[in-house]
Design a protein around this nucleic acid. Structure first.
Lengths: 211, 211, 211, 211
DNA sequence: TATGAATGAGCCTTCATTCAT
DNA sequence: GATGAATGAAGGCTCATTCAT
């Protein structure tokens, strides 16, 4: 079930983290195909042989780190507050997304690769943990707000969730990805330099759809 | 200025299109790094040498097809109606995006690769033609609607344009990309099977932000 | 017998010379293997097809230009004065060699390639015209000087000729070849900057062996 | 500083020598451009991958073997006797050169390539170790002989060294290189078959310049 | 368990040569 | 005769993976 071998569980946490950090950076910056296991091993200061004693293949190493990223993302979602007004929750979500992207830019960019058709065969080996968690989060958050009368009763909740996530995702990517930052600039000019402020405005705009 | 060599201009249109089709398909499905010029040449039924007499390098071939895709997208944008109510225009935009994605699924998926950090160095060689055209299109469309009183006067036009494009883009990608279709399904379930209908609902939702 | 095809005889002298000049330059600077016929054709402003209508192969083109160089060298030898003292003749030889090397540096460097084992199979297709002419020249010059009593009677003429040619050749190469210039500098320092003066000194030194 | 990778240091001396021998032979016989790493690896009985784990590139492999040749040549120079009459020393030099050329004909021919303009860019990465050693050797040998009164006091030592080396070099090359043997034959006929004897005569001739 | 040398398929690219127009 | 598109063998080099130590 896990993508790493048992040997990997037996090495110090610190070493595990180091390997992951290097691997995330390589995969995120070079892409799956162009990243090299040998290069990751070298940069991580371990031998190729060890690498293959931790992971069966390049594919597994990749899936292991994506999975680890999913775990992290899940935790982030779970730690989001379930209280306060809907607007407050949405604001928290947006700012948390930005904070996550700033703290883990490589991990964030890794998803750009996962979204690619190239990695579709790999993605199929991943559980849809994050999607389930996030969709759930959105649905509950919206439903609760409707119930509280904060949002209109006839709101198309699934679609609203989708719209919200689309915009959160794009803002988050603008933090770490050259292309998405560039795209955002084309739309909002120098306002792209202050993503937190932009998040506030985006919150206002999104709220309108929902009320 | 163009990414192909003059020789490429001199071969029959049909052959050019054939090569492009094959190349788009390979790059879209395998990604830039994993796609191989030799494979493209073989599948296109031409020799490697010919390939290199049309394009200086793998990089140029890639840029040539992305550029061609941009050209197509630009034309699509330019052919969009500038008349009718804002809602009608937004609906047309969404349905046109879906039609484009259905007609050119590989080309559409190619952009997933372009958005990647891996290809940032390549993207820099591309002009931002599409971004400029699309941003312009959105801004004018929104401003005109505000002027006509269809949208509220205090609308944050740049951000609204960004939000609109985000959602159009994601819907469009759900058409062609395995991952994005899958993601959409998580949000809206079986409604993902009728994207046209979903586009209508999305239009309604988006309209609300703006009015 | 000639290394070019009849077609080559039928084009204007000027064009022939142009092709030769470009080819000599390419072969001299890149070496036989690394020089490319396509590149030569392009730089010469003629089509590859024409190139192959003038010469059967890369090998023949190379041999044709080397042969042309031999012809030139032969003419140079034949134009050398047969009169004056031996010292005068040797001086003239040295200075003529320098003049030739300065006027045709690429052609001069071409011989560095011909001397190589790599081109031994090609060299075998060349007549030993130059060797014959030059050896003859040296022998006669020396014999005549011995007969005139300018050089000692027991001189080992063949070996003296060899010694003379060795040194003329090396000085000549120091004119055009980076390596040989550099080697000369190691021996004589900044005197390498005035090869004509050096030739005079070399003449004095050589004379001593012979008298 | 060295042109090989550390991995190369760790394999058995025997294997290292074998690889060098094959590589020297290929480069000497085909020339730098035409020699192929794949071919060398195949003939040496090792994989291409191994070759590239020993040397970073074709260029480095070439430089490594040339450098090794320089090292050998340096040792040869250093082992030459500093005693005996000048004539004896010159004789020893000539015969040592012949012995070296007979023992390492491919290595000897390698220098024909190094002298070429084609390899000028590569040569620049080589130190001028040999040149320095040999020039030093000649200068000291000559100066000492002048001091001892064996050679005339007004001898142009640098130029004399150059003249000596020119002739030693050409004789040495006549041992291993087809072209230079052939050239020598043109000058001295069948005497070219006994290079040792010719060396003796050449010694006599050279001595004359210097006394 | 850790190491890293070894392997070889496969990639991008070049270029001598051919041949239809 | 001139052109230049087409060909494909071959070369330099990379890298996922294996395995002996």
């Amino acid at each position: 079930m896990p993508f790493h071998k048992e040997t990997f569980d037996r090495i110090p946490q610190e070493k595990r983290d180091h390997i992951f950090t290097i691997a995330v950076s390589e995969f995120a910056q070079r892409g799956y195909a162009a990243a090299s296991i040998n290069g990751i091993a070298r940069k991580a200061g371990i031998s190729i042989g060890s690498m293959y004693s931790y992971f069966d293949s390049k594919e597994d190493l990749f899936l292991a780190i994506v999975d680890k990223g999913y775990e992290l993302l899940e935790r982030v979602f779970r730690e989001l507050s379930r209280e306060g007004s809907f607007r407050q929750q949405l604001l928290e979500l947006l700012h948390t997304a930005l904070r996550y992207a700033r703290q883990h830019p490589d991990m964030n960019n890794l998803y750009l690769g996962v979204m690619t058709e190239e990695l579709a065969p790999l993605s199929m080996r991943l559980s849809s943990r994050v999607e389930k968690v996030s969709v759930n989060y959105y649905h509950h958050m919206l439903q609760a707000a409707v119930n509280r009368g904060e949002l209109r009763a006839d709101l198309d909740i699934p679609l609203a969730a989708y719209l919200m996530d689309n915009n959160v995702l794009m803002l988050q990517l603008a933090c770490s990805s050259g292309y998405h930052r560039y795209r955002l600039q084309h739309f909002v000019g120098e306002r792209a330099e202050n993503l937190e402020q932009l998040a506030n405005s985006l919150c206002d705009l999104i709220m309108r759809c929902l009320q």
